[in-house]
Amino acid sequence: MRYSLLGLLMATSFIAHAEIQTREIPYTAADGTRMVGYYAYDDAIEGQRPGVVVVHEWWGLNDYAKRRARDLAELGYSALAIDMYGEGKHTEHPKDAMSFMQAALADADAAKARFTAGLDLLKEQAQTDTARLGAVGYCFGGKVVLDMARQGVPLEGVVSFHGALATETRAVPGSVKARVLVEHGSEDSMVSPSDVAELNAEMVKAGADYQFVSLPGAKHGFTNPGADEHQKQGLDLAYSKTADERSWADMQRFLKETFDKAER
């Protein structure tokens, strides 16, 4: 097959300019708190594509959460890492992280409002197909996206990675509209076996479209390459390349199936 020099130059130029675009976007929660979103999309894709909210770990909106937004953009999604703490704050100290998390979860309605504010921001982006929306969350963020599914927030699907599973607001029959995927480490000491059993029973009773994956040998934080550093702080966290890659592949299949169904 023969290519013209002009054609090759045009193709090379297109590849050179097609890349992941990112920007920080300020927004405001219902309670007036200033929030910061981190938005990512692939400018090589024309038109709208499904949107995915990313909810950070208990550390806050840090580089890891932003990286996951870029990873999702590379898969072809319109991705927004949202801010659940306000001012885009984050920390490396467990005591601060616990304080931030507890404050964010103290009022379930306020937490939902903060998530919804981020979801609304994602909908406002020109690249987002507002009929196909999902959310993924890590650790604290895993609990957040599960709670949003429990409360019937209009999402097609949610994915929890090493998330907290216990909740004060349980799903009831018919309340879960989103498909649900939970990726959980079998050796996660921060989530009790009873929490796992109760979540499974809850989702079955609610009639949810629900999948639970137990990743052998994986501990809490298994997706985050920086997790091992926190062992020095006495936290039972550990990165697992195998569990990270397997859970990411599970998520890709899940989101594709979910959004394909929504498109029909």
Rank of each mutant, 00 (worst) to 15 (best):
A97G: 15
D83T: 10
R264E: 10
K112W: 03
G185L: 01
E19D: 14
W58F: 12
L165F: 08
K177E: 02
A11T: 13
L181K: 05
G221R: 06
L215E: 08
G163D: 09
E24Y: 02
D31S: 04
V55Y: 15
T223I: 04
E19R: 11
Q127L: 01
A131T: 15
I20P: 11
Y210L: 00
V145H: 15
D147K: 03
L133V: 04
A178S: 15
T242R: 12
S99R: 15
G118Y: 07
V53G: 04
G163H: 11
L121F: 05
G207T: 03
G137C: 08
F222C: 01
S175G: 07
T116M: 08
K112H: 11
K232L: 07
D250N: 11
V182L: 09
H56E: 09
G137E: 13
H184Q: 06
E187I: 00
W59N: 02
G118V: 07
R67G: 12
A218M: 01
K256R: 15
H230N: 13
S214G: 14
M190F: 01
G163I: 06
A201E: 14
L181F: 06
A111F: 03
F100E: 01
D195W: 02
D43S: 08
A11D: 04
A238H: 05
L9V: 13
A103M: 04
A29C: 07
A178Q: 06
Q151K: 09
A65L: 07
G226F: 01
D43N: 15
D228I: 09
S189V: 01
W58A: 09
A106H: 01
A243L: 02
A106G: 12
S189T: 06
L9G: 05
M190T: 06
L155K: 02
M148A: 14
K256Y: 05
L6M: 14
G217N: 08
Q125W: 01
A166S: 10
S247P: 00
